[in-house]
Amino acid sequence: MVHYIGVILDESRYEQIKGTPIEEKVQSIFGGTLKMLVVEVPEDKSEQILKAFDRARIDSRGFIEDVPVAFRRAVFEEIVKNKSLDIIDKVLERLPEIQELAKKEDEYIPPPEIE
């Protein structure tokens, strides 16, 4: 069974993929208020992700959620670097580095500056 990872695109992320073949794969959700890229993950690889991060889970939509921010960032970086959504192997190669970054996330995530 295939699972999915959703990568939310804010303005800065969208600029990085604009004009590349990835742009046409952007999905618009919630009435066009949110843009997202969806990466397909084969079951054996989603199991690796679930094992790597103790709080990760598959939600009712089949998406892999509750993964560290560092993991999502790595997914997006690989998409930009490879101009492709077929990047899950590249992300898995970086698991040890992502796990290290994730440990720091348990203590502090900088809050956004909003009024």
Partner: peptide, 21 residues
């Protein structure tokens, strides 16, 4: 679908969820 964990992911990345969500 609304997914609480999807929203948590968005919040953690510092993305303000759209008001429809």
């Amino acid at each position: 679908k609304f997914s609480g964990s999807f929203l948590r992911g968005m919040v953690a990345e510092g993305v303000m969820p759209p008001k429809v969500v």
